[in-house]
């Protein structure tokens, strides 16, 4: 049996890098976490005020309930889930091909479009975790293009608002494909 993601140092490290990359791209990201489907925290980026393990459990429940609703309505699988509130929005989605969920909280000044885009980028990078792809960690240029089958997000290409935000090596190149 393979090591669960939340106990695999390589996966944890990779997840931490992915989250840090998201943060560098979106300063509005207050909190983010990668968690296993069954609610164990793999890594988190946090302001220190959020109980990461509790959030991991809650995100896992929310994801499963959303999937249950999508299944019930026969609308395929839930691509992402948004909880929009006065003081921020939570966006979460499954990591493609892995039993993992990526959840992130953005402050309200962020546009929903960018939040969706950043979370999608994070999930795609997370999909290439070192545990599933043995060998050297993926190079930053290896950012996957969205799979053609992937449905377009509601708001597709929102250019980064704050161009002065330093780009990390994990930040994606802004491409015509408008991830």
């Amino acid at each position: 049996m393979s090591i669960p993601a939340h106990l695999d140092p390589q996966v944890k490290e990779h997840a931490a890098r992915v989250l840090a990359g998201m943060r560098e791209f979106a300063a509005s990201m207050i909190y983010a976490a990668v968690l296993t489907d069954d609610g164990f925290e793999v890594a988190d980026y946090s302001d220190g005020r959020t109980d990461a393990s509790r959030m991991a459990s809650m995100s896992s429940s929310v994801q499963a309930l959303s999937d249950a609703v999508a299944r019930e309505l026969r609308i395929g699988t839930a691509e992402y889930v948004i909880i929009a509130s006065d003081q921020g929005h939570v966006l979460q989605r499954r990591v493609p091909g892995q039993p993992l969920v990526l959840a992130a909280l953005f402050d309200t000044y962020e546009t929903l479009g960018k939040a969706i885009a950043v979370s999608k980028m994070g999930a795609q990078r997370m999909a290439h975790s070192p545990a599933s792809e043995p060998g050297p960690a993926p190079a930053p240029t290896a950012v996957p293009e969205p799979a053609p089958a992937d449905p377009a997000p509601i708001v597709a290409a929102v250019p980064p608002r704050d161009e002065t935000t330093p780009r990390s090596i994990y930040a994606p190149p802004v491409s015509a494909s408008g991830w």
Partner: peptide, 11 residues
Amino acid sequence: VVRTEAANTER
């Protein structure tokens, strides 16, 4: 039954 099962990492 409406189920919300996730892959179990605590075997």
